[in-house]
Nucleic acid binder design. Structure first.
Lengths: 214, 214, 214, 214
DNA sequence: GATGAATGAGCGTTCATTCAT
DNA sequence: AATGAATGAACGCTCATTCAT
């Protein structure tokens, strides 16, 4: 957490610092990101930096966590129990929103792209971004089972992990290609299909009762 | 490629150097890995290092590529057309073998773990580890379709990417936990199930004909 | 150009650094000059050096250019059109002043001695010391012709080059020998004679009209 | 001087080594020239190098001095007393021959170009290339005076130095430009004119007697 | 005599962080 | 609180020369 001094700063300055830092962490992974460049770009004295933040990581942590908090705040309504959506539809909603967020904040998206690739950071992260995300998926899975959208015998621990990684991969897949209009939602649909039914060819099938599907 | 001088070295020394380097690259991602530490640990003069290798990357590349070549050599027989195995069974065989390899060479496994997370390196890698792996998956998918093991309408480009990443994730999942006997093959089974059928609950089903399944 | 930090330094320290650098660059040509020695002699931390200067060349360039600027400032008044002096007298004035400068700043003289011998550096030098000097001689020659002090048919391109090199050689000649009082100005006179009349013996001559000489 | 072992080598090998060394010293000034590259290009073992030569300088000295000896051997006939040529004509002959030599051996020419710019080497040079050249010019000047081609009162010490440097400068001037046919001899003529008569405009002159010119 | 591996001091440079004012 | 100069260990790498066989 940044020191109190940072929060006492006039908002404009605070914003300038954060913006510079975001640009730096978007352009470079944590280790290669340079405090000197952040300082120069934000126009503060190098001594001041350490009056606001314990060290480079302190600032980094603040930025990434702010982003995740914001993301969570945006995604939370979509998983509210009131909404009468199947597990997979909810998943799709979450993805649509995530992608919107990513498009709105490409800098922050780039930062978390770097973060996901850095084991050391991921485990250093105080509030545990990874474990929070895993927890989130775990809860979703449990609910999905309860709702009858998912097989009952899935390994929740394993599946939440897979879903987490899968999400990140799809994100990467989308981000690395220039997207035509709606192209990315088609990819999301493909991922959902993959999750729902897999890729194995089924035998000829007669669906007798399907009362559980919504 | 290391220089000739390296290959002229007595095997014992060569092994000592490779071992030290593997330890270093297993402990740290490429950028953080220190030539000085490798030198110290292998007990050679710093000048010697550069008699053997063009630079740090030269050694790194040699180690990673040797590992991938060895892996390929071990996996190649499993995908031979003669073996009468379904797509998913083949996948499982590949996984079993990969895991065995990883258990035998935990250092090398750790190194490729780092490599997979390093975009810059991945694209620098001369023989294109990533694109080779993707190509491999692409071919497997095509064959799977031909054999009637897979749905006909899957997006090969996307699916090969997903399978590639999924594989790495499962690997990571397994590696990060101490394994009980056979625990890891159970995880592999779960992944195969996930791939094959997904996690969506199907309606009550009567399979009338299933002639395509082997 | 050194960074701002350098110019913000207390004068004493700044001077200490410049002096150490001048000593180094006077003792060794650029490539052999050692940043480590400059650092040690000036008693600064090695990190500080790079807070003040972009790199070794930055400092070198600053020192040489400062010297050339100073030299130019000192020599400029001597070529002002108002002074009613012949080409050769002006040349002599310039030489006298140059030598005075060299005697006052033997270190800087030694540095430019090295510089003149370094083709690569000469061409890297931002403001083009060599081409500026050649331009200077070219202009002087043109004026000398206009004034009727020089033959009309000389090859200005070639002659300016020769004069430039001649000047450097004479400088070297003088610098390499310990000088008695006024000895060096006698050498300059000899050079001027050489330039003016050459060393060829003329026939017995009756000068009938000499209206062009001043 | 190279060690005896070098001279015991089969001529072919000796020549290969010398050629590689010449290429290296032509491409780089002494300090930047790399023993490793010479070794590689000549295909000998690095240990062998030091069995043939004391060190890098030993080889360098051998090459430069061989060149100067050869040059002297070529130029010597031109200054023989029997030839009935004026001082300046002899000078021109010497230049013509020097240039021919330079065109025939551009590598060696490049090497001496570097050598002339390196004070330290010049003074290290055992047999004293510089002082021998100066001695050569001194003798020529003395003879020129005796023959009545030169003014009697020139400072031989100074003038020989100037002539030496002037020669090198003209060489450089010529070498740096691509030469049209005969262009370089025109430059030599200009230099001789410069030496003979200088660039000062003479008054209107009536030459009464010119019995001393040949 | 030939080989080629071994040596190690030295290079210029970086950078997060601390210190003094 | 703000400044910005100071720090120094560490980095990857070079190279003429020596040594062991």
């Amino acid at each position: 957490m940044p020191k109190e001094t940072f929060f006492n700063l006039p908002e404009k300055k605070r914003r300038r610092i954060i913006k510079s830092a975001e640009e730096e962490f978007a352009a470079y992974p944590f280790r290669q990101a340079s405090v000197a460049r952040i300082i120069k770009r934000s126009g503060i004295a190098s001594g001041s930096f350490y009056q606001y933040f314990r060290d480079k990581f302190d600032l980094y942590e603040y930025i990434t966590e702010s982003f995740f908090d914001m993301k969570l705040r945006r995604l939370a309504p979509l998983i509210s129990a009131e909404r009468d959506r199947s597990f997979f539809d909810t998943f799709k909603d979450l993805y649509a929103e995530s992608l919107k967020l990513a498009r709105e904040n490409p800098r922050l998206e780039a930062i978390s792209g770097h973060l996901y690739r850095d084991k050391e950071l991921l485990s250093r992260q105080l509030y545990g971004i990874e474990s929070r995300a895993l927890g989130f998926y775990r809860e979703m899975l449990k609910r999905g089972i309860r709702q009858g959208d998912l097989k009952k015998d899935i390994d929740i621990e394993f599946t939440s992990y897979i879903l987490f990684k899968l999400g990140a991969s799809v994100n990467e897949y989308i981000m690395e290609r220039t997207s035509l209009k709606n192209w990315d939602m088609k990819i999301v649909d493909r991922m959902i299909d993959f999750m729902e039914d897999g890729i194995g060819k089924k035998g000829d099938i007669i669906t007798v009762v399907n009362k559980n599907r919504r």
